[in-house]
Structure formats: C-alpha cells, structure tokens
Design a protein around this nucleic acid. Sequence first.
DNA 1: GACAACATACATTCGTGTATGTATAATTAA
DNA 2: TTAATTATACATACACGAATGTATGTTGTC
Lengths: 213, 213
Amino acid sequence: MYVVNVAEELIMRRTKEDAQKTYDAILDAAVAHFSQRGVANTSLEDIAESANVTRGAIYWHFKNKGEIFDSIHERFYQPLAALLLEDIETSHNDPLQQLHDICVKLLLDFTLDLKKRQAAALFMFGCHYSGDLEKYWDKHHKKKEDSLKIFSRYFEKAKKDGRLPASASPEILTLSIRCYMKGIISEYLNDVENFNLEKNAEPLIAQFFSNIK
Amino acid sequence: MYVVNVAEELIMRRTKEDAQKTYDAILDAAVAHFSQRGVANTSLEDIAESANVTRGAIYWHFKNKGEIFDSIHERFYQPLAALLLEDIETSHNDPLQQLHDICVKLLLDFTLDLKKRQAAALFMFGCHYSGDLEKYWDKHHKKKEDSLKIFSRYFEKAKKDGRLPASASPEILTLSIRCYMKGIISEYLNDVENFNLEKNAEPLIAQFFSNIK
DNA sequence: GACAACATACATTCGTGTATGTATAATTAA
DNA sequence: TTAATTATACATACACGAATGTATGTTGTC
C-alpha cells in the first residue's frame, strides 16, 4: 500500500487557500489511486479517505470522477508540452544531439519524480477511454499528438542542415523515436523495481542515434 | 459498437461439443469487451449478452471474471511463445536478419488478426493487475519475461558470429528491441485507424537494424 | 446574516455470487 | 433395446454489498 494521506489534519477549513489545499490533496490522492488500481477500480471514497476528506468535499470541487481524471491530465500535460516547446524554440547547433539530450532528460525525470511516474502510468495503463471517460479521448489525444509533432521538427532541422544520412527518412525517424520512447517508458513503468532506467536511459537513447549521427 | 454475438442460436444445447462452443463464445465475447472497455468496466452480463447466454452459463464454465481473464491469457500467449521458440530453434545463417524478419512478421500479424489485436490491447491497456487480478501478475509477468528472453539469443548468436559492431552491446540491444517493439505495438493499438502498420512495420524495424547490420 | 466549504444521510442503481429450477444428454438397469 | 436414473449444461431468481449522486445539515468566514 503506497497510498499516503496527503492532507495533514481533519480540521474544518474555510479560507480560499485552504480550499485550494483540499483541491490539491484530492488530485494528489486521485493520481496515486488511479495509477495503482486504475480509474475504474478506484472509488471516490478511496480518494476521499486518502485526502482526509469526505466524498462531500470531492463533489464540491468536482462534478464526478471523470472531471477529476481530466483535471489530472491538465496538470500533467501542461508542463510537459511547455518543456518540449521551450526546448525546440531554443536554438542549438546540433538538432540530433539536442533531441538525444531531451529524450534522456525526459526519461531521467521519471526516475526523480514520483508524481510524473504516477501520472504517466495513469494515462498509459490506468485508464480506458470508454464509458464515462470516452468524452475526453479526443481532447487528450489531440494534446498528445501536438506534443509528439514536435519530434519531427528536430529531424527536419537536421535534414535541412544536411546532418541526416541520405537513407534516413525524417518521417520514419519521427515515428520511430516516438514508438521507442513510448516503449521505454512503458516497460519501465510496468516494472519500475527491475528496470534500471537511471543506468539505461542514456545507452538506450544513444543506441537509437548511433546510426544517424 | 463493435461487439458481436458469437453464438448463433439460443436453443438448449447439452452435448460436449456444444458446451465447448459456448465456452469459446464466452471467451471471444470477453476479449472483445475487455479490449474495448477494459476488464473493470465490463460486467459478466455484458459478456453473457454478447455470447447469447446468461450469467449462469458463465458461472458454470468459470469461477469468476478473473478466471476468464486468465483463460484468455493462456489462449493468447501459448501460440505466441511457441512461435518465438520455434523460430529461434530453426537454424539460420544470419541471426540479425532472422530477428528482423520475425519482428516484422509479428507486427504484420496484428494487422491481419483481430483476435490477436484484441488480446494484445487487453493485456496492454485493458487490465490492471490489482484487486481481483493481482494474483495473476506473477504468472503472466513470468511468461512475458520468458518470451522476451528469447530476443537476447539472437544477439548472442550474432555476437558469437562476429556480426555485431564492437561498440554494440547485446544487453542494450536486447532491451532496446524489446522497448521498440512494445512501443510500436502500443502506438499502433492506441490508434489503429491512423497508424498504418502494414506500410510502416518493415521500415520501422529496418531503421532499428540499419546501424548494426 | 449570507455564502462558501465542506460533512452527513439517504435513495437508487448496478454487479456479483449463490441457490434453485429444468431440459437434455449420457449412463445404467432391466 | 428400451426405460429409468443420474449428471451435465445451462437459465432463472434472489440476496447482498458497493458505489454513485443528491439532498440536507453544519460550521466557520467575510
């Protein structure tokens, strides 16, 4: 049982800041439960208990479980998309090295940040976009596609700079790195204890670039 | 709604072969529902309806939902593991080419076989090994690891034959192809309509091998 | 005193597991 | 060979708990 109580006390709280605290506590508790048991196997009572509130508090802040789920997505994807955008905007003389570095960085981030691990596990394995969650698929999928499109810009830059072998296709490379990253993160999250990502992140990514650099 | 009725008629049937038919119909209906909505969001009534039986029939053949889930796993992994074992046992003069071919074959198989797609989607995204399903994790995980260990044998062969560049490590390559395959299948199953696997399977795998062959 | 931020209580639905009923097939007895 | 018996392969009915959503109560804040 890795679920921890996020809120510290069970006192009555009515100020704006305190309301924000319970809001955050609910989201934190939700990510923890969702990632461990899946959205469908998590009851609002589970979340409430971990956040040291009652379901009443949850229904005050959120309409239902689906909106909690969606709120988590926003909180998780906003920084990720921003990070990627920021990286591609900063000029760098070797786009392939730059992509190499950001990929390693993204992977190592997971080893350092439990919250990110939980959120990623949630959206990769912990949810199914059917039933109540179906309506969020388009929105979430679109955000994911937008972020992933950024990958292609590194290869286009490299191509333009003549840094790609003639045999290499930017389209395939984009699809390839996308799948590769997805697979690494998947396999890591599926077995965090036995997959030594700290050690393997750089060699794995280096392996990918070894033929085009 | 892609769920189809698998059994044809609703008459009373009591022969051994007919019992086997309903058993199969239940499993088929279960895979379809599990892969589309997830195990947790699927009720036994859903399955029964698609299989043209009642929950009574399900409880006759299976103890509960978990055992249906486990039965599906057996039916799916047995042929897969057998295929991989058979391939590695057959002698081939170029192990890297052999691995390339089997990877492409595995991927293209998904484009041809709905059942395999459903089963893979089920075990990748449709289930969470917690609660009732937790007890199957060890067993399923072990079978997966056993199959994946086979990948390393191709690279060890290649290394022994001096077919690997000195810089390449068999361990990293094994981990790498494993993640890569997982990622390709993941991304494909996540968006079957837009991911053209028939077209991209071979280029993607070729891209992986381009630097070590 | 009004409203925000909850807690508590209640009604209802849904899924599960089990108990029981029943028609047919398989087996045995004659 | 056939009639009686038993076991199989389900369908039906019921009892129960769990989760949801809502209605209402309560407390502190501004």
